[in-house]
Design a binder for these strands. Structure first.
Lengths: 204, 204
DNA sequence: GTCTATAGGGCGATAGAC
DNA sequence: GTCTATCGCCCTATAGAC
């Protein structure tokens, strides 16, 4: 088996094309998460991955196809995480908490959930909108039909997830010294607030 | 892909500049809600308002200033709606429901909540991010300090609102014939599902 | 106050060398 | 497989007439 280690930089040794593709997808996830589909440029993705801009386009055909690949990869990670939490030992009553913790941990992959959020507000785009709806429904189905959530449990879990994503997207942790902001963040992720602030605060 | 209606035709009578400004803000709210801050063009706003593109820029200085004006107007409407619901007669236990109904009714102003959502995922932009955080916190404060919500009630209400916004942004109503999509929409807006579908489905 | 014309810059995509 | 060079479009903003 080949190593998955990421080697980056102009002086890095040649790497397999497949690895380079994964490297570009990682970089693209970060850039799309930060600036959104329209705001992200293929040049920014290229610079973040250490390759040339035309090569990024060559690899995926179009910027839209690249974004769809980012979404597909993000969705698979999300579903994998949920399925792992569902299969992990523990009582059924505890499942909600286990999935919730797993979800917050996903945030450490900066850009992953934010790329999904950007897709979720792009329903007006026919291609991206269709992919976004399909992905969202797939998450709902895993909760309902594999996790055993009833409709209200699934709704409540997704609602909390959307609020969490929104607080990360809006960089609410930047205002953590505001008492109301602090109270809100603490109520959203009681056992993970410090973690949340650390990974989602804008670097100073 | 744009379905933004032209509010005023070329042959419309002359109107006061102040009214024209409000007209442009209305059009901009719809366009920004549909395409987001980066994806929206000042030309699309101009066409939707029936004025020339340079005039739109002239009126607000920059596209960014226009978007900030749209956000400010949307936030004021949101806060007004909440305060009206808080002041309306009814038991304290019922307030959550009254504000929720008022919130769903706000969705009939297509673009208003979606423009806010686009701002909420733009925390990485220094100017827009700051405005978005300030607006979000203002909503939280009204719920907590004027509506008498405790932290958990406020969190839960905001979470439901974010999920609702997401379902509208993703155009989930387009999949209303899917059993899972239908179940999800019904659980989010039990008494308003039909209304929600009507106003948020993509025109065929 | 509102328009037409256009400058100026950025970005996705293509061509073609190596 | 990967790069450099560049085309052509689109979009914001400015200039200036009416």
């Amino acid at each position: 088996m080949s190593s998955v280690t990421v080697i980056r930089g102009d002086s890095a040794p040649r790497m397999r094309a497949e690895d380079r593709r994964e490297l570009v997808l990682e970089a693209a996830t970060a850039v799309f998460g930060e600036r959104g589909y329209v705001g992200a440029t293929t040049d920014a993705v290229a610079k973040a991955a250490g390759v040339s801009q035309p090569y990024v386009v060559r690899m995926f055909g179009t910027k839209e196809a690249l974004f769809l690949a980012v979404l597909e990869r993000a969705l698979q990670r999300l579903l994998d995480t949920f399925r792992t939490a569902i299969a992990s030992p523990g009582s059924a009553e505890d499942l909600n908490h286990r999935i919730g913790v797993a979800y917050v941990d996903l945030l450490s992959d900066r850009g992953l959930l934010l790329s999904l959020m950007h897709a979720f507000v792009s329903g007006a785009d026919p291609v991206i909108g269709r992919a976004a709806r399909r992905g969202f429904l797939q998450v709902y189905r895993v909760l309902r039909h594999e996790g055993g959530f009833d409709p209200e449990e699934a709704r409540s879990f997704l609602a909390g997830g959307m609020l969490l994503n929104t607080l990360v997207g809006i960089r609410m942790a930047d205002d953590y010294d505001d008492p109301d902001a602090r109270e809100l963040i603490d109520s959203v992720a009681p056992t993970k607030a410090e973690f949340l602030v650390r990974i989602s605060r804008t670097p100073r």
